[in-house]
């Protein structure tokens, strides 16, 4: 009996010590945790009072890009700490001159007819969640650095 347990243990530790199996080990753990997550779904309910909740003004000429408020002024965004960023919306509603012209003269800005890009910064939350943006671009930058370093190695 003990001999069998010992043998099984040896097989287990040999299997664990092969790094080709690493992905499989993590995947197995992932499956277990996901199944736990599925079982807990009934306990999770959507919190209605969300920050940055979505409001769409369908009549606006800026429709998909409209974040409320006149460009270059304050936008009404339900932020977590409004006092930390009183200027939220200065940037988020900025449009390039051409898009501004389109939006003022035609009702089709942002539709499939005039699929014209939005503003300087399409990311709506550059001002309030800026640190995310910084990290995100750093990630891209790092990955690009690694890829180009590997690509250009001559040895």
């Amino acid at each position: 009996m003990i001999r069998h347990i010992g043998k099984g243990f040896r097989i287990f530790s040999n299997w664990m010590s092969t790094y080709e199996n690493l992905v499989a080990v993590y995947a197995a753990l992932g499956i277990v945790v996901t199944i736990c997550g599925i079982l807990m779904v009934p306990m999770l309910s959507y919190h209605e009072d969300q920050i940055y909740s979505k409001t769409m003004n369908r009549t606006s000429t800026l429709d998909p890009y409209d974040r409320g408020g006149v460009p270059f002024t304050m936008a009404e965004i339900k932020a977590q700490y409004p006092d930390n960023s009183p200027t939220a919306g200065y940037v988020t509603t900025y449009l390039t001159p051409f898009s501004w012209f389109l939006a003022n003269t035609t009702p089709y800005f942002g539709t499939t007819i005039v699929a014209h890009p939005g503003g300087i910064i399409d990311e709506i939350l550059y001002n309030t969640r800026g640190l995310d943006t910084v990290v995100e671009t750093s990630i891209l930058f790092t990955a690009f650095a690694i890829a180009s370093f590997l690509f250009r190695r001559k040895d």
């Binding site: 700490y81 930390n84 001002n127 800026g130 640190l131 995310d132």
Partner: peptide, 14 residues
Amino acid sequence: EGEELFALEFGDIV
């Protein structure tokens, strides 16, 4: 984790 020493605000990320 012991007392807070200081906080640094970046918009909504503190």
